[in-house]
């Protein structure tokens, strides 16, 4: 049987008050499904980072989530400026966030490497001036 829970969220641009709502909602679903706390935690952190990135850099965007019996797949896409040098952006501590954002405690440059650390598969499609899509997969059972 094809049991997939699908959720779609809008990520508003530059709105920190709503940032994190999508990952919070996904966390609640995973808890209801009885997914282990460890997996819930990894998913929340990875998704939250990607969500915040879309708010800060991508002028907002969309989150698409699919959950089945073995994994959660998250796709966060924006139509922002894209990432010119992905390898550089993946480094810990690298950040292009403006000072105004850093003052709020965001933009410390841990985002992408943190997503990678907390997911089992991470893939980024990005094109300068077109936008960025981050694909995150977290498996329920360690592989």
């Amino acid at each position: 049987m094809n049991n997939v829970i699908v959720r779609d969220y809008d990520i508003p641009a530059n709105d920190f008050t709503a940032a994190g709502e999508a990952s919070s909602s996904v966390r609640k679903i995973l808890v209801q499904l009885g997914v282990s706390p460890y997996v819930v935690k990894r998913t929340s952190i990875a998704m939250y980072e990607a969500e915040i990135n879309a708010v800060i850099h991508g002028h907002g965007g969309k989150a698409h989530v699919e959950i089945d019996g073995s994994k959660v797949y998250i796709r966060i896409s924006d139509e922002g400026p894209g990432i010119p040098d992905l390898e550089l952006a993946m480094q810990e501590g690298y950040s292009t966030a403006p000072d105004s954002i850093r003052e709020m405690g965001f933009g410390a440059g841990m985002g992408l490497s943190n997503i990678k650390k907390h997911s089992d598969i991470m893939k980024i499609d990005t094109e300068v001036n077109k936008g960025t899509t981050v694909h995150i997969t977290v498996f329920f059972n360690a592989i």
């Binding site: 049991n3 829970i5 209801q32 499904l33 997914v35 019996g69």
Partner: peptide, 8 residues
Amino acid sequence: MMKALEKM
């Protein structure tokens, strides 16, 4: 979990 998914 499969039943939980169905219920969800």
